[in-house]
Amino acid sequence: MKRALAPTALALAALLCAALAGCSSTSEDAAGGSAALPPATGAQQLSGVCPATVSIQQDWEPEAEHSAVYQLIGPGYTVDADRKRVSGPLVIGGHDTGVKVEVRAGGAAIGFTSIAAQMYIDKSITLGAVSTDGAINSSANQPVTAVVAPLVKSPQMLMWDPASHPDWNTVADIGASGATVVVAKANYYSPLLVAKGLLKQSQLDSGYTGAPARFVTSPTIAQQGFATAEPYIYQHEVSAWAKPVKYQLLADVGYSIYPEPLAVRSAELPAMSECLKRLVPIVQRAQIDYLANPGQTNKLITDAVSQYNDGWTYSEGVANYAATTMKQLGIVANDTSGPLGGMDMSRVQSTIDTFAPILASGGTTLRPGLKAADIATNQFVDPSIKLGEGS
């Protein structure tokens, strides 16, 4: 999920940690030690079936929303602070699958290149996190096919100060008020909200940087954010604010994308099939394992952030809040198609029908006659893997 860099009071701690850690290190404590793990067996053994290193390109800095793939990284992982990558044995349920996994940061680490484009620039990438709207956008020249969706709902939101606007409860209320809405310059949801009549084009201010100063000094505005991060950050880590915010998820007003499903280059789907039959269910289980016990993976994520030392800050407090919030809000949940990680193809098609005209009107060339099967498939998803009521 692309964001803007947001320096906070945590930056000093990150700088100190990075200075002590150096540019690249093996982090045994955060990963639980580097002792040899028992090998996985059966369908969870990936050696000889998948690439020796499964490289996963994320679209932003390490954060809990990427937990399914960071959960795969086993003990003795290595942080490459120069190239912004974390690698280690690919592990599920305490067993070594026989291959390595490498999770790469997006955003500044790849010059803010779209993930679909990066996948075609760098063919060593096995899987990339490409949201449904991004896959539609790249369908003509850089086609990708999503194979598993660890998140079922986008955490993207618009937030506001409840003291300044006690009468606001929805995005529609913001639109009716005529208040300024501060968003990032490049996003897919603003045209959607305008097209649906929820916001006016004249309300949009594309000056969002991620820094809290604008919101703190102008509390009458509305602002983009993530329900998994900013509510905690503004209340607990932005001392100049230190109180709750209110918000509505854009998923609740028509932003129907699957956020960051893992995708392959479409032409490579047949060649990757044997690997994906084994790997996709492992990713499904990893997301469930994370929700059951997020602490260790959150430590790994925050360790990587501190060692990268690139202006992005992310505390364990935020990560733990995100883990709880993703479950509470149904951001991680069983899909309407049945399993966790599945994709409802009617929903994918509806998203295409919504976004294709918007993107085309903005000058994007799309694949003619684009259909859900062109950008997503459930053929590798294990329908039996579901998040239980007590999970």
Rank of each mutant, 00 (worst) to 15 (best):
I233D: 10
Q235V: 01
Q235S: 11
H236Y: 13
H236Q: 10
E237C: 05
E237N: 01
E237P: 00
S239K: 12
A240Y: 02
A240P: 00
W241F: 07
W241H: 01
A242Y: 07
K243M: 11
K243L: 11
P244M: 03
P244G: 08
V245D: 14
V245F: 15
Y247W: 15
Y247V: 03
Q248T: 03
Q248D: 10
Q248P: 06
L249H: 04
L249K: 10
A251S: 15
A251E: 05
D252W: 04
D252K: 06
D252E: 12
V253I: 13
V253D: 13
G254T: 05
Y255M: 12
S256G: 14
S256I: 08
S256E: 08
I257P: 02
Y258D: 03
Y258N: 03
Y258I: 04
Y258P: 00
P259T: 01
E260A: 13
E260P: 00
E260W: 13
P261I: 03
P261K: 06
P261N: 05
L262F: 12
L262I: 00
L262V: 00
A263I: 07
R265I: 02
S266M: 04
S266G: 02
L269C: 05
A271R: 13
M272E: 15
S273Y: 09
S273E: 13
S273Q: 14
S273A: 15
S273I: 02
E274P: 11
E274N: 15
C275K: 13
C275T: 09
C275N: 13
K277G: 01
L279N: 08
L279V: 09
V280M: 11
V280K: 06
V280W: 09
P281T: 08
I282P: 07
I282K: 11
